[in-house]
């Protein structure tokens, strides 16, 4: 291989040679949202011309546009896949506006697109106008869909053997919950909404031509629930599931996750109950039997 003779970085008029400067300027330009016609914003022309050569077919701005479009289409695509329920609740136009506003403020800060939605709930709380008049439902759906991302691939820790429950007194037994379990208190039956959406999507893909148009227009909604909905989003044999709970079960699991002993967690959970102690004990036994079957308990995290 012939070695090139090393020269000092040359700088044409108007061209910057600093690598960091070039990267910062180009990134700033391509991350600006596209126009309504999905084109790069004309205001990026100065940056494009400063750094990028035109060719016989494309201006500097048109060449930069290829990257800007790819950036936005990739991020919007990934975000739309993770929040398909939110899209179905808000409708295409409103969802696209929300997605662009969110991604402009919270672009990806990770090597994986998996974390793209990590700030969505806080963003929706801060910007209720973007989801009006369905703000409360949108928030619930966003919480569930982000929980679904976590449940999919958060780590699983070693399961605590049920024998340990039996041999450790309740006032000394502390149990951790698997990191992939997310416990939610919702005001809408989002699990029902997600099932309905899945059914709609299935109908769409199984019914050829007419279906693709239906699929685009697919909207779903659910009414606010009279009572809070307590939902665990979890994983079993590498698939994600929703599990509804009583308020007491939800409170008990939260207390265990916060480090309470089993005894204290049960007391907290049933503090306001009017049920007889025997009935409470029966419930607890049934819950624990199911949860242990799911492998939900692990050693508590060190504090």
């Amino acid at each position: 291989m012939q070695k090139l003779s090393r020269r000092k970085s040359s700088s044409r008029s108007g061209a910057a040679s600093g690598l960091a400067e070039l990267q910062r300027a180009i990134t700033g330009a391509l991350m600006k949202p596209l126009t309504a016609d999905e084109e790069i914003q004309p205001s990026n022309a100065a940056v494009a011309e400063r750094f990028i050569k035109p060719n016989d077919r494309l201006t500097a701005l048109e060449r930069l546009q290829i990257y800007s479009q790819q950036y936005w289409w990739r991020l919007l695509g990934a975000f739309g896949e993770d929040f398909s329920g939110l899209r179905a609740v808000l409708g295409e136009k409103k969802f696209d506006r929300l997605a662009t506003a969110y991604l402009e403020e919270h672009g990806s800060v990770s090597w994986t697109l998996r974390n793209l939605g990590s700030q969505l709930t806080a963003f929706l709380e801060k910007n209720p106008k973007l989801t009006e008049p369905s703000t409360a439902l949108a928030l619930d759906v966003a919480r569930v869909e982000w929980a679904r991302v976590l449940a999919f691939d958060e780590p699983a820790r070693k399961v605590v053997a049920p024998e340990k429950f039996a041999r450790t007194p309740a006032d000394r037994l502390r149990l951790g919950l698997q990191p992939y379990i997310v416990l939610l208190e919702l005001s809408h039956p989002v699990d029902e909404l997600m099932r309905r959406l899945k059914h709609t999507e299935f109908s769409a893909v199984s019914n050829a031509v007419a279906a693709s148009e239906n699929h685009k227009r697919a909207r779903v909604t659910v009414r606010r629930s009279r009572q809070p909905v307590f939902l665990a989003v979890h994983r079993l044999e590498n698939s994600v599931y929703f599990k509804r709970h009583d308020r007491e079960a939800h409170t008990l699991l939260l207390a265990l996750r916060d480090g309470a002993t089993l005894g204290a967690a049960c007391e907290t959970a049933f503090a306001d109950t009017t049920e007889a102690p025997e009935q409470c004990a029966t419930k607890i036994r049934e819950w624990f039997s199911r949860w242990a079957e799911f492998g939900w308990f692990c050693e508590p995290a060190r504090r």
Partner: peptide
Amino acid sequence: CWGSVDGRFTHDLLPMPYTWEAVEW
């Protein structure tokens, strides 16, 4: 290629400016 700046990721494979500075980095 390059693809992230100040912790913000483009998730794209952006071409390099073919400079000596970029060779070293």
